[in-house]
Amino acid sequence: MTLFYHFCFYLFGLVAVASACVFVTRKSPVAAALWLVNVLFCIAALFVLLDAQFIGAIQVLVYAGAIMVVFLFVIMLLNLGEPARIADARGTLWYIGAGGLAIVVLAAMMVRLPHPLPIETFRIAADSLVTEARATGAVAPVAVPLFTEYLLAFEVTSVLLLAAVVGAVVLGRKRNESDAGPASQPGTAGTGTAAHAR
């Protein structure tokens, strides 16, 4: 591997780890969520370094994009109040314990890494995928099964999402004033629906 590759790997890897550390130590939830975005971007970059451009793009779109936006919305809408009051109130012992555990896991991984036993088994399966990906682009190995073998599941997922959206709108919309009680006067039209296309 080239020097450039190593440089990029260590750059993004270190930024990811550092951002993750900052992320778990922030007291304000909004700041923590923004640091998490940084972590997810760096991981997306690592995916690209691994020749998995598609997963990298999806990582940015789904995790750093959609999911983080929902996180931030929830945090801001809940308006939890003083960061100091809601912050994780665990003591120093917890910090030391969590940090120690992380170091142990990291050490175990570094000790195991020179003898990566299962990697060879995975490589056989991965090689065919890599060949295919080189030939047709990174998206095709994902797209082709999605629209052939799993076509029905794909379509049913869209129906599921449709049902969930309709239900969320029905439960979440503003209550009609005419909807005020059981057995109210018949024939009163509501005013709450969005589509007044009569």
């Binding site: 449709l162 009609n176 005419s178 509501g190 709450g192 629906t193 589509a195 296309a197 009569r198």
Partner: peptide, 14 residues
């Protein structure tokens, strides 16, 4: 799906 659109098309009424 058609009924879903129809249900949303008009304001709620009995």
């Amino acid at each position: 799906t058609v009924l879903m659109l129809w249900a949303a098309w008009r304001p709620d009424s009995r």
